[in-house]
Nucleic acid binder design. Sequence first.
DNA 1: ATCCTCCCCTAC
DNA 2: TAAGGTAGGGGAGGAT
Length: 796
Amino acid sequence: MKRRKRERNENGFEDWGGYMNAKKAKLSEQFKVESAKAGLKVDDLFKGVKIFVNGYTDPSADELRILMMQHGGEYHHYYRTGNTTHVIATNLPDSKLSQTRTSITVKPEWIVKSIEANKLLNYKDYLLVTGRTISQPPLLFTKQQSNKSPTKLPMKNTADDHFIDEFYANSRLHHISTMGATFKEYINQLRSNDRHAFPGRDHLSNQYPPSSGKMLATKLIMHIDMDCFFVSVGLRDKPHLVGKPVAVTHSKSGAGNARDGVNLLQEIESYRNRLGYGPSGSSAWSESKFSTTASMAEIASCSYEARKCGIKNGMFVGQALKLCPQLQFIHYDFDAYKQVSYQLYDSVARYTLDIEAVSCDEMYVDLTNLFQAIDLAPMKFAAILRKEILEKTGCNSSVGFGSNKLIARLATKKAKPNGQYWIEDDQIELFLNDLPLSELPGVGRSTTHKLKELAIKTCGDLQLLPLQELQKEFGKKHGETLYNACRGKEEKGLVFTHVKKSVSTDVNYGIRLRNDEERDIFLMNLTKETAKRLAAINMKGKCVTLKLMVRSKDAPEESAKYMGHGVCDHITKSVSLLSAISSTDDIYREVQKIIKPLGLDSKELRGVGIQVSRLESNAPVKNRLKDLFAANSKPSTTKDIVQKSPPPIAVEKDGKSTSVTKKSDVNIDKVPHKETSHSKDPKIEQPKTDPEGSSVQESYLLPADLRAMIGKWVEAEETPKRRDQRIILGYLLHLCKAQQIEDVFIILKAFYLYVKRRRKMQADWTQAYQKILESVQASMVAEYGGKLSMEEYRFL
DNA sequence: ATCCTCCCCTAC
DNA sequence: TAAGGTAGGGGAGGAT
Ligand SMILES: Nc1ccn([C@H]2C[C@H](O)[C@@H](COP(=O)(O)OP(=O)(O)OP(=O)(O)O)O2)c(=O)n1
Ligand SMILES: [Mg+2]
Ligand SMILES: [Mg+2]
Ligand SMILES: [Mg+2]
């Protein structure tokens, strides 16, 4: 078995880290004196200094942010022309280097050493760029100086160590998802700063002081959303394209490419087979059978001129070109989107922090409080705000007002492009009457399709349906939501403080694995990415879920979309854990435990996702910054020991995971909307009986470790939680079925003694033990026709 | 009732 | 060629 070692590093970087570590160690003494609470100001060392961190640095951007906060400086999430005083960077790619000529770019040691010296050192001694050369360390990628562009290489193999990074670097959906999370967190962070200033609000309250006693009668919610966001950002330096139909996409030429194994018509049929209706615009793209090479690249965003032809975000390029042959394409610029997003959020944050972040280009704002401090008409405020955003970003936005989020959002839609609209309560009924149902947030393809069968197309139509009817069709809550939404009613307030509940990494593109070995390499890489994301937010989780997409039996060998997933069956399986995990090894073990018994053909995999949920905070008291400065004194061995603690216990639901002959162990998507197609599940490779016999068992916990964990559990937990009891029982049943009766006996005995040893004999613990014992006995009878003799080990 | 897992749906 | 991610709400149906 080959172990892949970290394969760094081609640019002489390690020495640098060592140097920084030494510096930081020296600072540790002083740092200890400082408040442990990050964010509390200690001095004004960096007063007037406003930094923007560009690229990888050590200390990290986040650590520099905290340092600036502690020493009276300012931290900018993006470069603010005429405001940011210093760019902090260690190395910059060629592309970004040019920008730095117009600004002061300084190495991070300037900050570290200044803190160390307890005085502001001259930044000129720490410039990254001196004249035309980079001082130290050397620029990355200097080898690639050859004339020919290094692009044009074929797509990386799925199991390539860089496949995941490259995919994510280019995935727009990954970027908007990540940015969405970024801005939810950004609002959390702004709101947690009690010194946050509101210059916009202050200015307005001077200019439009509140007339005494005047209060807003009802809640006022504002929704704001950038117009064709990616396009607007991209067109800022392409004025010749403004006013034309434009789309952001990866497609260069608009042409696709014919490949072996593709069968478009078969694929559409397979899709229809699964969902009961075809892919959107399928007639348009099935016409492309005549021109086999229509591009199936997706359009991320299109200009309003393009929308006049019927083009929509998410549409395939080939289909869009049919609607509008003059459509022009521009490239992605993910860095720019993020910068504009910060400018958008910062603009609104000048007035209020009663903000619910929705995405990188969109948020809800509760203005009820703001308008108690100022006497200004909402529409006037919107004009001021939108003008400010336009001046800062060069992009148009639109604003909607309403008495709840739903109405505000509908108003924004009405206002677009580059407008503002207020739907007051007495206009709601009229506004909704003819509104197509699909315009309601929460009503997507499936719901629209279902309602169309009932001849319901508008909100007005839907209002005629009684609540019970809707609940029968859509379930209790969803039915009620629809019932209210079509009347413009919505109770939900804004969520100002976001709490993350799960972390996942999915790749459903470019998955083409040749064998199980490649599958495991890819799974390991994906697990590493998952662990990295958990570490980044300092979380661990008690549930691991594996999501797989497997080519449907009736789908063509190759998807019509290049490297796409095509039509697939979905398999989801999760493992509950007794204690939370976050390391690559721990997660990978669970992933293996799930995937092995499925017995899938790796060649048929088209998508893989790993999710960690039931999150809890990792190392709640620890302050990473403190570690940073205090580290280095001893190459600590204790860390290694801690990591070697026995793996947490995990079991499949009901512990039935080894009954591999049971079909129910593989969960296959039900075919929605087609009650008639009960006949047979789409066939899937039947799990094969384990060839090596013991490999399944190997991925499980050793009995000794289980015993130890039960000991800890009984000792550490106040009361036995139902979920944990289930997990323990599941594992015992698993041992039972694996014929490890002796182990079951020993563990139960130990469990009994642990409970007995508790200082206070609690009824809930004895009951928990009894319940588990009884369940194990029942299983013993079912499996072997006899019980364990546990007479001495039972509570009465 | 309540919880659990697996799944569907939606949004950007 | 092309980069079809990710998080949350909630329903179905079985177990407790
Ligand atoms: N299917 C989609 C939808 C959106 N996006 C990205 C590109 C969009 O520019 C951005 C914001 O999404 P919006 O729904 O706000 O759409 P736009 O801003 O493009 O247009 P609109 O003016 O309707 O808001 O998210 C995407 O990549 N793929
Ligand atoms: Mg938008
Ligand atoms: Mg695209
Ligand atoms: Mg939006």
